[in-house]
Nucleic acid binder design. Structure first.
Lengths: 241, 241
DNA sequence: TCCGTAAATTGTTATGACCAATTCGAGAGT
DNA sequence: ACTCTCGAATTGGTCATAACAATTTACGGA
């Protein structure tokens, strides 16, 4: 028979989320601030500590809160960000391929590059340029190169002036970067990647949106190929062990 | 001095997530299946029930699991999807504007439309066409029209053949649709929206990726204007009360 | 004044119990 | 023999309490 499924998950949990959220919107709680201790907060909301913890746990897994034993629970600071974990899980469960992720990343970042060309501020341009300089300095150090690679893309996303877009870019890229950090073993030639980064930067700098998009598209296609190659080598290397 | 922040959140919680995830990957747990009862599962993992519940709660808030009191906890069925709640919270916390969301949605859906033109299967084309027919039938019923509007866009996203992309489209769109369902009060003219949907469909059908992208871009720009207008009317209406 | 140690604070885990919703089977009625 | 109803068993949701671990804070000695 089974017609319906109520599904309404946990009354109290949602109440906690709503209540904490309200605190934040009233500016009674700013990024970096510490929440009241659990024992006290539970009393304020008129619920038990386990129930409160369920709600806080939900906010923690969303990445809104963060807690340190002995210290307290804090409202996260820093730029807005979504946890990549849910997407990573979903991807593994349904067998999303890395190719699809790259394709999605391309769409997002190509869009971001176009907007960045229209809106980037001087500071943001400076940040991009600095990261390119750091990449030059790290040509012999794959891990370090990757760090500044990430930072450059993050700067472009930020320069799009669209925090929603930047958040999605970050979420998708994080998964690919994390994977790549494990497979990037030996330094193959980073000069090509660096040159493509510079091409993206020059286009943004000269406010040429179409060229910025095209450059970013080209860059990510190449990155995808490099990634696939590294994956292959990584697998062969593991098989040999 | 505060140099570091350990941050490692909840040992046991992550263990539960990892363990359940493992069950799923081993195909011991398929979509729609019921998990063992909490009391039993806790014993299997050698942890207490509260700890187990913390982990399950994390998976629930990610949208991987779903529980019904008295019935059990289930692995969610249906197409892969990310919960929009985290993004919605993040947006409210940092004051993301609806304009930014529309811009992001445009980037995602324009990309999806382009891919759909290259890859859509016959079934997927049929689904799109059916939803357009339903929109014709619902020209006088705003809520119903909106339902098929959503379904059409979902069909396009699915036809992109990229589940990662489809998931992001869904996540962003859900927020805008939910908001719109509340503000869409009287039937203004849906003929224009319908015509633009048809233009998108024809382009995909004829495998013209560039035209599909352009049509989707145009459609979303108009949708954004309609949305802004509805918001304005909604506010004025509320002010009058 | 500085530093280390102990006490207080605060998140983490555990145990046990009870409540509420659902499920499923036994028994009554047809 | 079949169907319906009701109640017991199952299962998730909430609560209270306690012990534990990490951090912070404050006190006291050098």
């Amino acid at each position: 028979m089974q017609i319906i499924q109520p599904v309404r998950s946990a009354q109290n949990t949602e109440q906690v989320v709503a209540r904490v959220f309200e605190l934040i919107k009233r500016d009674e709680l700013k990024p970096g601030d510490r929440l009241p201790p659990e024992r006290e907060l539970a009393k304020q909301l008129g619920i038990s500590r386990p129930s409160l913890r369920a709600g806080l746990g939900s906010l923690i897994s969303m990445g809104v809160l963060q807690s340190r034993q002995g210290a307290g629970t804090f409202l996260v600071d820093g730029p807005p960000a979504l946890d990549s974990e849910p997407l990573r899980l979903l991807a593994e469960l349904h067998g999303f391929s890395y190719d699809h992720m790259f394709e999605t990343r391309s769409i997002l970042e190509v869009g971001a590059a176009g907007l960045a060309a229209e809106r980037a501020t001087g500071d943001q341009l400076a940040t991009m340029s600095e990261e390119i300089a750091e990449m030059f300095a790290a040509l012999k150090d794959p891990q370090q190169f990757l760090v500044h690679d990430i930072a450059f893309h993050r700067a472009v996303a930020a320069a799009s002036g669209n925090p929603t877009l930047a958040t999605l870019v970050e979420m998708v890229s994080a998964i690919l970067y994390e994977r790549r950090r494990d497979t990037i073993e030996r330094a193959h030639d980073f000069n090509e990647a660096l040159e493509l980064h510079r091409r993206v930067y020059r286009a943004i700098r000269s406010r040429n949106a179409e060229e910025a998009r095209e450059a970013m598209r080209e860059h990510i296609v190449r990155a995808q190929r490099a990634f696939a190659l590294e994956e292959k080598q990584h697998r062969e290397r593991q098989q040999k062990d």
